[in-house]
Every structure is written in C-alpha cells, then in structure tokens.
C-alpha cells in the first residue's frame, strides 16, 4: 500500500486524512487539512517558511513525511494566537510581504520558550534557519529581542 489513513493532532484538533506515504507534512497540512498559514518556499529545507512545531521542536514540514507525524503533537501558525512574539512582530514592523513570517514566528516562538535568556549567538543560531527577502532582518531582530524581554517579564 502506498497510501493510508493517518490521524494527526494539529493545534489540539484531531484530523483523519488519507495520504500517500510519500506526502510531506507540509503538503498534507495545506492541501488536505487546509491550514495554509504554513508556507511552501523551497520544498528543500532551505528557507524555513514551512516551519511548524512538533513535540516542542521546530521542524521544517517540507522535510518530514506525514506518516511520521502520527501520534505527535503538531502546532502550526494557526495554533498561535496573540502570542508575545506575534505582538512583537506587529509592534516592530518585522514583516513586509508576510510570506516568511509564519515560519519566523514559529521558530522565534520556540526560541523564546526554549532559550528565555538567549544570547545573540543563540538568537542567530535559531533565526538563520529561515530566510526573509523583504526586511533587512533588523526588524526581525528587534521583534525577537522584544519578545524575549516581554516573555520573561510576563513569566515573572
């Protein structure tokens, strides 16, 4: 059998979908489930626009098969609502066309949760997984740093 029905847990909702074994998680999330906030940019793991969170870790969904994601806890950009980092992106104008933004936010959200006191080099290590073509990255830097500050403040 080259296809099967899988059960996926995305943003705390359960989805039963028929997928080809070779379908990437990106494809399934977008085309089968209709959560189009996760963006295709290269399908090669190079741009990070398709970043989602799986079991607490940032993952490029173009480089994972859907069948691998069964029984895992998947969060997409639609699963984040008014988070610190989203507010900071608005505040700091850290997007223009907005296409890379979901990926940056998913990745940045992991950063502020995993590394609340991230150094500059840690921030770089996280954020260099994604590419933005509109901004000169400075606004993204400001937004992530503001989110780190605000998140620590909120958590006190």
């Amino acid at each position: 059998m080259t296809s099967r029905i899988v059960t996926l847990s995305i943003n705390n909702d359960q989805y039963h979908v028929h997928v080809r074994n070779i379908d990437t998680l990106l494809f399934t999330i977008r085309e089968k489930i209709g959560l189009t906030g996760t963006k295709p940019g290269c399908l090669n793991g190079d741009c990070g626009a398709c970043t989602v969170n799986i079991n607490g870790e940032a993952i490029k969904s173009c480089l994972m098969l859907t069948v691998e994601a069964e029984n895992k806890c998947i969060t997409t950009i639609e699963g984040l609502q008014d988070t610190t980092i989203q507010k900071a992106f608005i505040e700091k104008f850290a997007f223009q066309c907005g296409y890379c933004t979901p990926g940056f936010i998913m990745n940045g959200n992991d950063l502020i949760h995993n590394e609340p006191n991230a150094s500059d080099s840690m921030i770089k290590s996280y954020l260099e997984s994604n590419i933005c073509r509109c901004t000169g990255y400075q606004e993204i830097e400001e937004a992530v740093k503001e989110a780190l500050t605000n998140n620590n403040y909120d958590n006190r």
Partner: peptide
C-alpha cells in the same frame, strides 16, 4: 507617524491568503 500596518494581524497569524493558499 508609524501607523501599524493594516495587514498586520492576518500576516502574523498565518491567515493572510496568497495565491497558492486557494485550494
């Protein structure tokens, strides 16, 4: 003034629609 962008909310929540998102 740096008025906040009118497309901001949709863009940071992944709900802004681009061509490929019409499925």
């Amino acid at each position: 003034k740096s008025i906040k962008r009118k497309d901001a909310i949709e863009k940071v929540h992944g709900t802004a629609k681009y061509t490929a998102d019409y499925i």
